[in-house]
Amino acid sequence: MNRSAPPLTQSQAGQSAPIRQICCIGAGYVGGPTMAVIADHCPGIQVTVVDLNEARIAAWNDPDLSRLPVYEPGLDVVVGRCRGRNLHFTTAVEAAIASADMVFLSVNTPTKTRGIGAGQASDLRWIEASARQVAACAQGHTIVVEKSTLPVRTAETVKAILTAAQGAGGQTTFAVLSNPEFLAEGTAINDLEKPDRVLIGGEEPEAINALAAIYAHWVPAERILRTNLWSSELSKLTANAFLAQRISSINAIGALCEATGADVREVARAIGSDSRIGSKFLAAGPGFGGSCFQKDILNLVYLCGHYGLQEVASYWQQVVELNSWQQHRIANLVVRSLFGTVTGKRLAVLG
């Protein structure tokens, strides 16, 4: 691990000013660990994570590393190594943006609960608010990086907000990149340290190269993929949709196995041995949960419908519906095995 590298310079990537300051808006599950790993591998860059939640920032700054607001194996070690050196957590959002050469947007994008697209589309109010804050506070040339999981074409909104704020004399300018996260709970640090790929989408080669140069401190060049903005934004949703699809597929086969006397574990091992398919995400169970898969698939469904691709929308909607069916099917199996009622009985959940 290279801990003595000098600051990266944007002149190396086709820009004039050195990259010395990074700001990340959002100190949650993605922003905190990602910035910690960047700070660990790039000691010449000052990395500041900002959030309006004072309690969360206080937890990130707690001397007791076991009280960090995010638990991930190895995260406490990384934060302990960098915090106070070149990794900082603060609620001083405006000052951090003003001094930054690169700003990551890593805020929450939940599913909308009302309005157009309610129940499917992503609520982008925090992305828009963050973009407006960057537009108001940034100085000089700033590279703005979308880190949150976003619907394809979101960068158009971010660019429009930033373009409106650009100084007439060119004193304030912006470049927008998409750099989605591919983290799994429980393995986030390993996913960041040894990623399958780092995806960077953009329209300006200089900005893309500047971000790629940061990752190049520890990620092999062949694993840093460059695309256009829209491909990068869509790739994150597609990756989660494909993983969820595999879970629904093996659960559907699991139901057929129960009806025919086949063993779904043996079937999964048999098809997983096919190099074209592989063995990951073929464990039958009660279906997928968590904060990402269903949200991202429903977002994909909404986007397909928005662009008039109703057959495609129906295809991905079926993945969600089958998952819901599987959850109810497993619940019914449990109730039936307990003689029709769970009242007064103790249930243990393994895993």
Rank of each mutant, 00 (worst) to 15 (best):
A121M: 00
S122P: 12
L124A: 00
R125P: 09
W126Q: 14
W126E: 09
A129N: 06
A129I: 06
S130C: 06
A131D: 06
R132M: 12
V134I: 15
A136Q: 08
C137H: 07
C137S: 14
Q139H: 14
Q139G: 04
H141D: 05
I143W: 00
V144Q: 00
V145E: 05
E146I: 12
K147Y: 07
S148Q: 04
V152R: 02
R153N: 06
A155S: 15
E156V: 10
T157V: 14
K159A: 13
K159P: 00
A160V: 06
I161H: 03
L162I: 01
L162P: 13
T163M: 13
A164E: 10
A164Q: 11
A164Y: 01
A168H: 08
T173V: 12
F174V: 12
F174S: 02
A175R: 12
V176Q: 00
S178P: 10
E181W: 06
L183M: 04
L183N: 08
E185F: 08
G186H: 05
T187Y: 01
T187V: 09
A188C: 12
D191H: 06
K194S: 14
K194N: 14
K194Y: 14
G201S: 05
G202C: 09
G202S: 02
E203R: 05
E206N: 05
A210N: 02
A212M: 10
A212W: 00
A216G: 14
W218Y: 14
P220C: 02
P220R: 11
P220Q: 09
R223T: 00
I224P: 10
N228E: 06
N228D: 15
L229A: 09
W230I: 08
W230A: 13
S231I: 03
E233S: 08
A239K: 01
A239N: 11
A239Y: 12
N240H: 04
F242K: 13
